[in-house]
């Protein structure tokens, strides 16, 4: 994973200890919160996580599984899940279309539920499992929804597509894809400015009626 900003690098558990970082955390005012919070800040200090780079004390520890891979990270609390994925983990399949929860391009699954990753703080996802578009296919075998999007041409520019697909998979799993009308309503959180909507609905219907496991 190429990373150009060293102090935002996902930490590798194999790397050596960094006493400075732990010291920093222990001394920081954040610990005044200890009385009432076993939050990840404190957990991070207590757990004596391995860190390669001394991070500023504003950062907090975070454990995430993304597409089945475990990450131990240290992030500023204000980093959204979307920006963490795109800017730090370089998983750019998840798109930023508005940054305000108004377009759905950033849709990912958190513990199996579809959410807008732009309005989710990364730290609040501590311990959760994230699935992004990069994690949907099984190796070279595309997910049936991905196949159906190709077959029905459920996109043009392709920018909203990862969000549409993640949302479409969830839509079927939620049982909200029983009719064209229901699909349209429950997919309305995913905007496609190219206007490929009828093809997207056709793709979802095919997967829904095709009986494949989604």
């Amino acid at each position: 994973m190429a990373d150009s900003t060293p102090d935002s690098k996902p930490e590798n558990p194999e790397c050596g200890h960094n006493a400075t970082r732990r010291q920093f955390l222990k001394q920081s005012s954040v610990l005044t919160a200890l009385a009432f919070t076993p939050g990840p800040v404190v957990q991070a200090a207590a757990a004596e996580w391995d860190e390669k780079i001394a991070a500023p004390f504003e950062k907090v520890g975070l454990k995430l599984a993304v597409n089945g891979k475990n990450y131990k990270l240290s992030v500023e609390p204000r980093v959204t899940l979307l920006d963490l994925l795109r800017e730090q983990l370089h998983l750019t399949g998840t798109k930023k279309g508005c940054d305000y929860g108004q377009c759905g391009a950033c849709t990912v699954h958190v513990d199996g539920k579809r959410v807008n990753s732009c309005l989710a703080l990364a730290v609040m996802q501590d311990g959760r499992e994230i699935t992004t578009i990069e994690g949907l296919a099984k190796g070279d075998d595309l997910h049936p929804m991905q196949e159906a999007f190709i077959k029905h041409d459920g996109f043009q520019c392709g920018y909203c597509t990862p969000g549409q697909i993640m949302s479409a998979v969830a839509c079927i799993r939620e049982g909200k894809a029983d009719s064209e009308g229901e699909i349209r309503e429950f997919m309305s959180g995913n905007i496609c400015r190219c206007g490929a909507y009828p093809n997207i609905v056709a793709a979802i219907q095919e997967v829904k009626t095709g009986g494949q496991k989604v």
């Binding site: 005012s29 954040v30 919160a33 009385a35 009432f36 919070t37 076993p38 939050g39 990840p40 800040v41 504003e58 907090v60 500023e76 609390p77 204000r78 703080l121 730290v123 609040m124 501590d126």
Partner: peptide, 18 residues
């Protein structure tokens, strides 16, 4: 967005106090 401190209490009482 400004930098802020983040805490995650485990009990409502702790949240209210904070």
């Amino acid at each position: 967005m400004n930098q802020f401190q983040y805490v995650r209490p485990s009990k409502p009482k702790a949240a209210i106090d904070a």
